[in-house]
Amino acid sequence: MTELLQTLIFGALIGGVYALMATGLTLTFGVMKIVNMTQGALLVLSAYLCYSLWVHFGIDPILGAFLITAPMGLLGVALYKLVIERVQRIDHGLTIVATFALAMIAEGLIALAWGPNTRATTPPYFNRSFRIGSLVVPQAQLYACLLAIGVTVVLQLVIKRSWLGYAITAASENPEGARLVGVEPVRVGAWIFAISVASTAFGGAALSFLFQFVPDSQDVWIGLTLSVVILGGLGSLAGAFAAGLLLGVAEAMTTTYVSVRWATAVPTLMILIVLTIRPQGLFTRATRQDLAT
């Protein structure tokens, strides 16, 4: 019983972190129908930036995440303006190929900048735990999960309650209608990418003290974040959160009860199962699409 409970705690905490890591991808996927294959590389980049701030200035990675949101946001705008927007105009289907190419470039640049060695940040809490009876709650996981909840709530408020959120919803669904009320979809797209990439900074910070990373870790993280988004159902933030939890628990269960070797296969397997059985995701309902206008 304790073992099961402990597994659930580990799984849920790490699941929250997975959702946090996927937030940026959830946004671009949900509102722009763009599969941003650079998500993994952006996470790893954020982790390296947090690492550098930690090693050179002793800045805590969570604080570091707040410091790098602005430059990461600008990077997002640059990605959108220089590549995504152009490719979208040529052929929307090619955006996935273009972002894949960007991920390769990013990985190459990261390897040149930081070298091939394994890195991680080690803030004081990275190996401490709270104990409740016989149960262990690792501090690092807990803080990362709280960060995840915070970021999700803030983003949800922005989307549902702000003019920017209305403009995002409007432009993503009906670009020409949006232009007619004075919303420029291109500007909105830049905002979405700014928010998406900036929010990735938090996922990257969590990555930096929870896992070790090398430049090609991005392969693992793109696979994982994709599976969160797909499970959650095409870009709903709440759905992605639920999916992250599910994935975290499934992985923890596999590690405890099957074998740690197969735990890495869980996200990939989930992608396959969901996309073949329920392509619209686990946490969405089918909506009426044929209403005549």
Partner: peptide, 14 residues
Amino acid sequence: VVQVPQRHGLFTKL
């Protein structure tokens, strides 16, 4: 000057 478009003028998710 404001235009009401021919079709699909609304934002169905709002």
